[in-house]
Design a protein around this nucleic acid. Structure first.
Length: 287
DNA sequence: CCTTGTGTTCTCCG
DNA sequence: CCGGAGAACACAAG
């Protein structure tokens, strides 16, 4: 489940490998995850190069500068973007195989080969994700659906408080809403609430200013730390080099329902559905 | 039936 | 009554 820290980790990795390298081959599968006209996408990519890779929330944007076109890639739950360097020839004529599982596999829906022999694989087991070719207007329309970026400098407390509003729904539901705040999913919604000492089921309009401030600080702290550790791997998530994230062992509540709270060490963590998502919290440490 | 991210649909309010 | 926002629901595949 790639959320902001995972998608950002992938973005930083891919930027190192594939900016300004010519695309020499494009393989596309006829599947739903490749949106729109396959021929158009193929033509846009073939012979082109990515001038930049940016991110908005959990969405990656590959820039084809000369053509004023963009390739939007959303990983949803099980999508991966993995880069493999061209095989290195060594003395004796042998070559080193990749460290990751053999790619492409049956979930590789898009494979892009670069002039230096490197390959980018878009894999998605559940096929919830998508690859879409977009012009400037389409891109602007998509970007307009996102709320503020929590790791940008402009994410002040005033911006956060305004985005939250005075709604009657749970703070959990609001944190998951991408038009309120960009990039938070189920993992970091629960971790942020724990860090802030707030029950995820609390209604937004019941939060005091101090509680909102604690949540604002918690979101920034958790996302920054998760990014530093290369994100969280529960199942499919891998970085651009196919490696899992290291934040998983630092999770305090997500995936720990029924286990002892790591803060008070006395209360068993509660797990219930909130906003129709599995939600874990400590009934003692969170109020 | 479970998992999660988001597109769609419905409801409500001014 | 209309526009828009808010909230609930549906759907994807393994």
């Amino acid at each position: 489940m790639p959320e902001l820290p995972e998608v950002e980790t992938i973005r930083l990795g891919l930027r190192r490998f594939l900016l300004r390298k010519q695309i020499v081959a494009v393989e596309l599968k006829q599947v739903k995850v490749i949106r729109g006209d396959l021929v158009e996408l193929h033509q846009a990519l073939h012979g082109a190069q990515f001038s930049d890779i940016t991110r908005r929330g959990k969405l990656l944007i590959f820039h084809l500068a000369k053509k004023k076109l963009y390739v939007l890639i959303h990983l949803k739950m099980t999508g991966q973007l993995i880069y493999e360097k061209g095989k290195t020839k060594v003395a004796g004529g042998h070559s080193f195989p990749s460290l990751t599982d053999p790619l492409p596999n049956k979930y590789s829906h898009l494979v892009i080969t670069f002039a230096d022999g490197g390959k980018l694989f878009f894999n998605d087991m559940r096929r919830f994700g998508y690859v879409e070719l977009a012009g400037p207007e389409r891109l602007a329309k998509v970007l307009a659906t996102y709320g503020p970026e929590p790791l940008e400098n402009g994410f002040t407390f005033a911006v956060f408080a305004k985005a939250l509003g005075r709604r009657a729904i749970s703070i959990k539901a609001v944190l998951l809403n991408q038009s309120v705040l960009a990039g938070i999913g189920n993992i970091y919604a629960d971790e942020s609430c724990f860090q802030a000492g707030i029950k995820p089921g609390r209604r937004v309009n019941s939060l005091t200013k101090n509680e909102k401030r604690a949540l604002w600080l918690a979101i920034k702290k958790i996302l920054k730390k998760a990014l530093k550790y290369g994100g969280t791997t529960f199942s499919e998530y891998r970085d651009a080099e196919g490696k899992p994230g290291n934040f998983t062992r630092l999770l305090k509540v997500y995936g720990r329902g029924g286990k002892l709270c790591l803060k008070c060490r006395t209360t068993k963590l509660t797990k219930k559905k909130i906003a129709s998502r599995g939600t874990v919290w400590c009934a003692t440490c969170q109020r």
